Amino acid sequence: MKVYLNGVIVDEGAAFLPVNDRGILFGDGLFETIRAYGGRPFRLERHMARLREGCRTLRLAGIPGDEEVRRAIGELYAANVREGDAYVRITVTGGAFDGSRTLRRSGPPNVFIVVKPLEPYPEEYYSHGLRLTVSRIRRNATSPLVRVKTNNYLESLFARQEAVEAGFHDALFLNTYGHLAEATTSNIFLVSDGEVCTPHLECGVLPGITREAVLEICQDLEIPTETGFYTLDELFSAQEAFLTMSTGEIIPVREVDGSRLGESCPGPVTARLIQAFHELVKSPGPEI
């Protein structure tokens, strides 16, 4: 497999990071995960804009431009995938550790890109829905890092591991104020009386690219939406719920901690949004 590392396409076995990389030592860095449909990355410019905003938060400079990233993804797709959908990950690390235990860095970041065939989620997730549990871990809504897709993902991994060990598919986070936040790698939506609702960004959630697309689709379909501050009781009383993520698109939620959500899964609004999203990604042209 070929990968991109700091401006060069190389064999995977020849791509190395130094042992003193800040990403290894401190989890210093961030990443983007993108789904490419037939080689076309979904909303690459928006992913890159979020990546750059995260770099500004982390005081990171020197990442490649959008066109260089686009060319690299195209070359890697041709080398590693050739046809069908692909998984794309762009990773930025803090570069060499020079002794500074602040966000000051004396050298450039390390940037690598991986493109490989997409491994889709099981079809039963879409036909029967997910079973979630509420994690005992809370998202810190006041932290500037909650809106950055940082390389330190242990909190999410820990929450998902506990969920899987308890027999669930994934975990759902509340924030430190008790409001709904997000799942471990996705945003959450609920449908109440025909209105599509999702936690406000101030709840401590990542501004998901698929989340944004779903809100735009709702506007096009004239489905009312709201971003707000929701409790677990409001989730339990919803008629439908679903998760959104780049690789999995829209996945319905069947139940939370054993409580069934709505009468059918996926519900009618969720099914309509799934169909509309599929139509969006099939739109012609080099950009999606």
Rank of each mutant, 00 (worst) to 15 (best):
R35W: 08
Y37R: 08
G38K: 12
G39Q: 08
R40K: 15
P41W: 14
R43L: 14
L44C: 03
E45P: 04
R46D: 14
A49I: 05
A49H: 13
A49D: 15
R50G: 03
R52P: 03
E53M: 05
G54I: 03
G54S: 09
R56Y: 11
R59G: 11
A61R: 15
G62K: 09
I63T: 04
I63A: 11
P64Y: 07
E67A: 13
R70W: 14
A72D: 05
Y77W: 10
A79Q: 11
N80I: 03
E83F: 10
E83G: 05
V88K: 04
V88H: 09
R89Y: 04
T91F: 06
T91I: 13
G94I: 01
G94F: 07
G94N: 08
D98G: 15
D98S: 15
S100H: 10
T102V: 04
T102A: 12
R104Y: 15
S106Q: 12
P108T: 10
P109D: 08
F112N: 06
V114P: 05
V115K: 02
V115W: 01
P120S: 09
P120T: 07
P120K: 01
E123W: 01
E124S: 14
Y125W: 13
Y125F: 14
L130Y: 06
L132W: 12
L132P: 00
I137V: 07
I137C: 02
I137K: 09
N140M: 03
A141I: 05
A141Q: 11
T142N: 12
P144M: 04
R147A: 13
K149F: 06
K149V: 03
T150I: 03
N152S: 14
S156H: 12
A159D: 04
V164D: 04
E165I: 09
E165C: 11
G167M: 09
A171I: 05
L174D: 09
